[in-house]
Structure formats: C-alpha cells, structure tokens
Design a protein around this nucleic acid. Sequence first.
DNA 1: TAGATTGTTAATCGATTAACAATC
DNA 2: TAGATTGTTAATCGATTAACAATC
Lengths: 245, 245
Amino acid sequence: MRKKGKSREKQANVEASLRVSPAVINRLPRYFRYLRELIRIGRLRISSSELSELMNVTASQIRQDLNCFGGFGQQGYGYNVKYLYGKISEILGVTQNYKAIIVGTGNLGRALATNAMFENRGVTLTALFDIDPTIVGKRIGKFEVEHIDKLDEYCTQNQVDIAVITVPRDSAKETAEQLARLGVKGLWNFTNIEFDLSGTRTKVQNVHLGDSLMTLCYNICAEDNRIAAEQRMQSADNQSEQYED
Amino acid sequence: MRKKGKSREKQANVEASLRVSPAVINRLPRYFRYLRELIRIGRLRISSSELSELMNVTASQIRQDLNCFGGFGQQGYGYNVKYLYGKISEILGVTQNYKAIIVGTGNLGRALATNAMFENRGVTLTALFDIDPTIVGKRIGKFEVEHIDKLDEYCTQNQVDIAVITVPRDSAKETAEQLARLGVKGLWNFTNIEFDLSGTRTKVQNVHLGDSLMTLCYNICAEDNRIAAEQRMQSADNQSEQYED
DNA sequence: TAGATTGTTAATCGATTAACAATC
DNA sequence: TAGATTGTTAATCGATTAACAATC
C-alpha cells in the first residue's frame, strides 16, 4: 500500500519545475520503457537492485534519479511497478495528451505518420503538411495531407503542442521559425541543421540520424583498430618466440 | 601550411585506440557536420573561438576535444577547415567505406533505404532484407528486397559491416543475435528493445525514437509547469498590490 | 618581431557511486 | 521484531572550463 500523509514527494520540483539535471532527464524514458515491459510481464514490485541488474546501471543511480521527483518507493519493499510507471508517465507528460503535427511528408515523414509510437506515448497526431501539390490531398494513414500554406491557419485554430520537422534542409530554418512564432511548444527536428530559438519558449529535440550513424562508425572503426593492434602484438610475440629457442 | 616533422599527433590514440571519453565521441559527428558546412560556404580556416561561437560551446572544449586525437591546429593561425574535416572523417571511419544492409523494410526501413545519409557519410548500402513474401522481390530504390532466409548466405559471401535493424520488436532480439553471430561489426538499432551482445565484438547504436519524443515531451511539460508557476506568482503579486493601497 | 591562437595543465564543476541511517 | 530496501549524505570520479606558456 502507498504511504499517504507524510509523503516526501518533491512537489516543489514537479510544480515549480526546479531544474533537474539533463543526465537524469535523458534516462527517464528508459525507465519508462523498462517499467512498461515489467507491467507487460505482470511484475507487481521491483527493488532498485533488481532493476539495476535488468538495466545495467547501478542501484544507487536509480534511487538517486527517482528521488529527484519524489519518494516513489517504500523501505523494505521496493517500488510498486504500476505506481512508479504512472509517476514517470506524469513527469514525462504522457498524461498531458499533447497534440502533434508532421511538417514534411517525404519518406521519413510518412514513416512517422503511420507509426504507433505517438499513441503509445500519449501524443496524438492531428495533421500532416507538405508543400508538394502532387502530395497535398493524398491520404497517409488516417490523414489527408494539407498544404503548408494552411499551417498558419491550422496552428491558430487548433492546439498544436509538437511539430515534427521532416522537411528538406533548405526550408528547415524557415519552417522552424514559423512554427515557433505560431507558439508551437516543441519541435522534433529530423533535419541536419540546428535551430536557434533562444528568445522563444519553444523547445527543440534534435534527432540527427546522421550523427548516430557516425557514432556507430566511430565505434566500429575504433574496434577495428584495436583488433589490428592485438594482431600486431600477437605476431610480435610469435617473432620473439622464434628467437627464443 | 601543415607542420611536418615534429608532429604531435596522438598516433598512439588513433592506432592503439586508447579509450576516448564517450562525451567526446558523441560530439565528433557535430564537428563533422559544422566543418562540412564551413567547407560548403568556402571557409579556409577557423579558430576555436570562432567555431565555439558558431556551435554554442566553449573554445576550450573544442581544443580539448580535438587534442584527444592530435594537434590538428596551428598556433597563431587556428585550424585549416579542410584538413580538420579530413582528420575527423578519418577518425569517424568515413574513409573506411563500410558496407551496410537494412533488415526489415517496413515504413522506416524503406525511408532509410532511399535516404542519402549513408552515401554522404561514406557508408554504402548493399542489400535489403524482409520476411514478408509480398515484399520480397519488390524494388525499393535501387535494390530488390531479399528474403531474410538469405541473410546467412549473404553475410558469409559479402562484407557486411553494419546492419540497420528495422524489424518488428518480436523478431528483433533473434535478428540481432543472428547478425552478431555472422560477424557484423555494428548494429544500428531502431527497435524499442535493447540487445545484450557483450561477449561479442559487435557494437550497438540505439536510436530509440520513442525516447527522444519523450524527452521532448518532458521539456515541454516542464516549461508548461514553469509558465503556470510564473502566472501564479504574478496573480499573487497583483493580489498583494490590491491590499497595499 | 609582435600578435594570435593553439596545446596543455590546473581548477572547477557536475554526475556517479558508496555507505548507512531511517523506516517500512 | 528482524530483514529488507529505500532516501539521502558524503566521497569519488569524470568532464568542463579557465588560464597561460609554447609557438606559429
């Protein structure tokens, strides 16, 4: 059972949004993912040490992270999986029912438009926009693509919290600034360029797929180098063995 | 002109792949991106302080980061843009001409298959695989989709450095382990689950789009809370003003 | 040469881990 | 109550920034 009265929840943190370190914030979605999986397999409770083994992090880090937002656990018991999942969902804004649009219905935009990811995370897609007249009017999933000229009107008349930006790089900056002007709260940026929206309240989350691919390439390349170095060592050893007898 | 003889390049680091901190590695692709842009606009040289302004980081960090790999600059001059770009490209493995395949040609797989990102970063796509018989044999971009049953044979007979994993979550673990067994050097994972390939030399780079969306939602939600708090403060101020006179 | 800017060391800052008292 | 496990403080570790001597 949950403790009631003398709850230690850091209400201050949640309410006044006292700055939580970016390192912690970036780990929250991963907790969310693991907790959902635990619910799926029917787990009712979990201790920080069990979860730490599952997630390959320290139990200390888990307790520290969760405590930025409140005392969600119980001494001697651990964490109630569903309760914790609910709390993290709240913190992540899953319960806010944010509305999103996709701007740019190229291959990537279309792929996202039909992806269950949004609804699985409490975000509702409401419209798609494109500039290409041969695409405008076509159906993608349950939407009819609208012309980008309608963007201003749409954003003024409907709640738009998030805009997914999947336009070509040349129109990206302009589009981003337009959306920020229209008061869209967050941009999910799939283009290669970065936006400077300081001076607005609009948040930007960059995906930069190319950077991710490059990081992978670096790690592969570094491993290749290590393997080559190992082999050089080995053959050097063999050489000296030959001389030894 | 580049200095020659008494070069200070950390050859040791590049050759023996002395561990570079993950924080630095994750920043490299961003340098790569900005340098490419500088080349595009015809810049020949740049100082760390100029670049720092452009990228919104400290000059100190830039010099520190680059020096993990060698002395690529010149006192009193700065960095030669093309030379530095070449060096970072090398470090990131762009010059290795890695070969990649895409496993899973759903919406996301198809979007990636026709994306210029790979060739722009020195990676060559060579084949696509899927399990769905209605898709196998169809053309996507310049490829004909092959059946996943051919994966073993293909990987044995061709160099496959990178596999892009865009399969449904239920077949993800199995697919990843198969690819690791086949000696694929790196997995670019677009599924929601994580792989444990410790004990293999295969590197995994997770994209986790859902996590990225959640981080954006957190930041929006936190900002919403801050705005609400501000407004409460404001109305409290107004209240006390009323009482003041 | 004088001015500029790097490479590098030392100082600071922030994030992670360890330890343990509080408490369920 | 005794055992378990959290919440939290203190210690450690790593990453960032500042400063400056080296040098182009």
